[in-house]
Structure formats: structure tokens, C-alpha cells
């Protein structure tokens, strides 16, 4: 694994390396160098399989974290390439020319997070919200699903929520003073 990283370092600037296991490493690269790093891993290091492309919303930092998880089937190794992109701009280079399947992931991210991938095929078509979605992208953390649900889906009044730990304690051991 170290050899792969060393070879990668010659062409790409790696900002952060986190070893999860012997066969699983997460590296962080800059937005500009991400696609060349992924291309290098695919063509030189035999990471031929794109396992998943997903995103994390870092609302407080104003960033989206994209994770490209790649797999080397021959040597049974995984590497995760993390890219931090600006949350306001929310745009990333497409990798559908490397893996055609990536276009589907990118469509999903476009719909659920509002991250744009210019040039990706069928990007702006509806993916799963085809019942006519008109709100903001639902997976962004500043979208309040509870408020949306209450406004849209006729909540039944009288619903109350308890903290399970406290509630079970008071139900099971009522004689103990829970303060």
C-alpha cells in the first residue's frame, strides 16, 4: 500500500493519509488534482472498480466532502479518495469517462445534494424524486425534513417524543428517583 501511495505522491499532492486497515486507506487530495489522482490509481495501480461515490455535508465548515471509494480486485485493496469542495459553488469535475457507472452516482448527488458535475450524461434528469420534487436538495443538512414533513404530510396531532434511555428507566424502575 505504501508503494502505491509513494508512486502517487510523485504526480499528485496528497494532503492527508489515514490508514484504516492494512488494505484500506483514505487519502485527501485537492479539488484540482482529484481526477488525475483517480486516473492514476485506475490505470497504474489497478484500482479498476469504482465501489461508490458519495458525499458528506460539512455544514459548519461550508464544505462538501466527496468520497470516491476504489477497489483493486486483484490485490483485494481499497482506497478512498476524499475531495473537499466548496459548499456554495458545489461543482466538481465529472469522472464518467473513467467509469460509465459514475454518471448514475453523479445524477444521485446532483439530485440529493445539489452538487453539479458538468458534462455528465443525463445529469439534470430526475433520478428518484420523480413524484415532482420542488424543495431544496433533501440531503443537505440545512434542509429541515421535519418542518417539510409537517407542512406537507398532515401530521397527526398528539404525537410526543421521549428520550428512550430516560423513558425506559422511568417505566421500568418507577421507584428510583431519576433526578
Amino acid at each position: 500500500m505504501q508503494q502505491i501511495l509513494d508512486a502517487l505522491k510523485q504526480s499528485v499532492m496528497i494532503e492527508d493519509v489515514r490508514k484504516q486497515r492494512d488494505d484500506l486507506v483514505f487519502i485527501t487530495v485537492s479539488e484540482a488534482q482529484a481526477v488525475s489522482a483517480i486516473t492514476h490509481l485506475r490505470d497504474r495501480a489497478n484500482f479498476t472498480h469504482l465501489v461508490i461515490l458519495t458525499a458528506v455535508d460539512w455544514l459548519e465548515e461550508g464544505l462538501f466532502q466527496l468520497t470516491y471509494l476504489l477497489n483493486n480486485p486483484a490485490e483485494k485493496k481499497d482506497i478512498g479518495v476524499r475531495v473537499m469542495i466548496d459548499r456554495e459553488k458545489a461543482q466538481m469535475e465529472s469522472i464518467h469517462h473513467l467509469w460509465p457507472a459514475a454518471a448514475t452516482y453523479q445524477r444521485e448527488l446532483r439530485e440529493m445534494f445539489g452538487i453539479s458535475f458538468p458534462g455528465s450524461p443525463r445529469l439534470n434528469e430526475t433520478f428518484i424524486l420523480d413524484e415532482g420534487w420542488d424543495g431544496p436538495p433533501p440531503y443537505r443538512r440545512d434542509f429541515d425534513t421535519l418542518k417539510y414533513s409537517e407542512e406537507t404530510y398532515f401530521p397527526r396531532p398528539g404525537r410526543s417524543t421521549n428520550d428512550p434511555a430516560e423513558y425506559m428507566k422511568s417505566m421500568l424502575y418507577p421507584e428510583v428517583d431519576n433526578d
Binding site: 424524486l129 413524484e131 434542509f143 425534513t145 404530510y153 401530521p155 397527526r156
Partner: peptide
């Protein structure tokens, strides 16, 4: 189906079937 259950705050799951 009664009040949304554990999906009461979901963005694409209905809360009350009788509507």
C-alpha cells in the same frame, strides 16, 4: 400508517394514510 411512525420526519414518506 397511523402517524408516520419512525418516519414521521422523512421528506418523502406520508404520515397519515386516512388522508
Amino acid at each position: 400508517t397511523i402517524n408516520g411512525g419512525m418516519y414521521y420526519d422523512s421528506y418523502n414518506t406520508i404520515n397519515r394514510l386516512d388522508y
